[in-house]
Amino acid sequence: MTVRLGQIMHVNPNYFSEYEKRHRSLPTKFPQMKKALKEAGAHNYSIYLDKRTGTLFAYLEVDDVAKYREIAQTPGCKEWWHYMAKLMDVNPDESPVTIDLDEVFHMD
Rank of each mutant, 00 (worst) to 15 (best):
Q32I: 08
K35F: 12
H43F: 07
D50Q: 04
D108N: 11
S95V: 02
F57W: 08
A66N: 09
V97I: 10
T98V: 13
R24H: 09
M88N: 08
K51Y: 01
Y15H: 15
R4L: 15
W80T: 00
K34H: 09
Y15F: 15
H82N: 12
P96V: 05
T74V: 01
V90H: 08
Y45G: 00
S17Y: 08
K34C: 15
E70P: 04
H23P: 05
G76V: 00
E70F: 05
K34T: 15
P96N: 07
E20F: 06
A85I: 03
M84Y: 05
H23S: 02
N14M: 11
T74S: 08
K21E: 12
L87P: 04
L60Y: 13
V97G: 03
E20Y: 05
E18C: 07
L87E: 01
M9H: 13
D63C: 06
P75N: 12
A85L: 04
N91H: 11
G76A: 04
V62C: 05
A58H: 11
T2M: 14
F57G: 04
V62S: 01
H10A: 10
K35W: 12
N14C: 07
K21Y: 12
K29Y: 05
Y68N: 14
V104G: 03
H43Q: 01
M88L: 15
R52E: 06
T53P: 03
A42R: 03
R24A: 10
T74L: 03
K86F: 14
L56N: 06
K34G: 15
Y59K: 13
V3S: 09
D93R: 04
C77A: 08
I47L: 09
V62D: 06
D102F: 02
D50E: 03
M33N: 01
E79P: 00
L5H: 01
M84D: 05
E18P: 09
A40T: 00
K51L: 00
D89S: 07
P92S: 04
W81C: 11
F57S: 04
H82Y: 14
W81P: 01
K34N: 14
T74E: 02
K86G: 15
S17M: 07
L37Y: 15
A40I: 02
L60D: 06
Y59P: 06
Q7C: 14
E79M: 00
T98A: 06
V62G: 01
D93W: 11
I47E: 07
E39P: 02
D64T: 01
G6L: 13
A42M: 11
L60V: 08
K67N: 11
A42F: 08
Y48M: 04
K51G: 00
D63T: 13
V62T: 05
Y48I: 00
F57I: 13
F30N: 02
T28S: 14
M88E: 14
L5T: 00
V62I: 07
I71R: 10
G41C: 00
K29A: 14
K29S: 13
S17R: 09
L60I: 09
S25L: 10
M33F: 09
W81N: 12
N44E: 10
L56G: 08
I8D: 12
D89N: 07
K21G: 09
T2K: 15
M33E: 04
T28C: 10
G6I: 08
V3W: 15
L87K: 02
K38E: 14
F57R: 06
A40Q: 02
